[in-house]
């Protein structure tokens, strides 16, 4: 139970940090962390189908697409 609370706390911290950072690359990594922890929590909630979708799309593909998009535009937020 403590483990789950720790994960939720980490997820909240990642979400807040993702919106605060000015360097967009760090924000994307924080968002990937949020997705990864969300998939672990889905697994604990006995929804392995959703966990797999979240891990493969949210944590892997979205991060890659965001990184490619950042590489083509500006990296730092003004």
């Amino acid at each position: 139970m403590i483990f789950v609370f720790l994960l939720v706390f980490l997820m909240l911290a990642g979400a807040i940090v993702a919106s605060i950072f000015k360097d967009l690359m760090n924000s994307v990594i924080a968002m990937a962390l949020v997705s990864l922890i969300a998939s672990i929590l889905f697994y604990f909630l006995q929804a392995p189908d959703v966990a797999m979708a979240e891990a493969s799309i949210g944590a892997a593909l979205t991060t890659a697409i965001f990184i490619i998009a950042i590489r083509r535009t500006k990296r730092h937020e003004e």
């Binding site: 392995p48 189908d49 966990a51 797999m52 979708a53 493969s56 799309i57 892997a60 593909l61």
Partner: peptide, 10 residues
Amino acid sequence: PGGGFQGGAI
């Protein structure tokens, strides 16, 4: 567990 969407994403 899993299916077309998950396998396609992988």
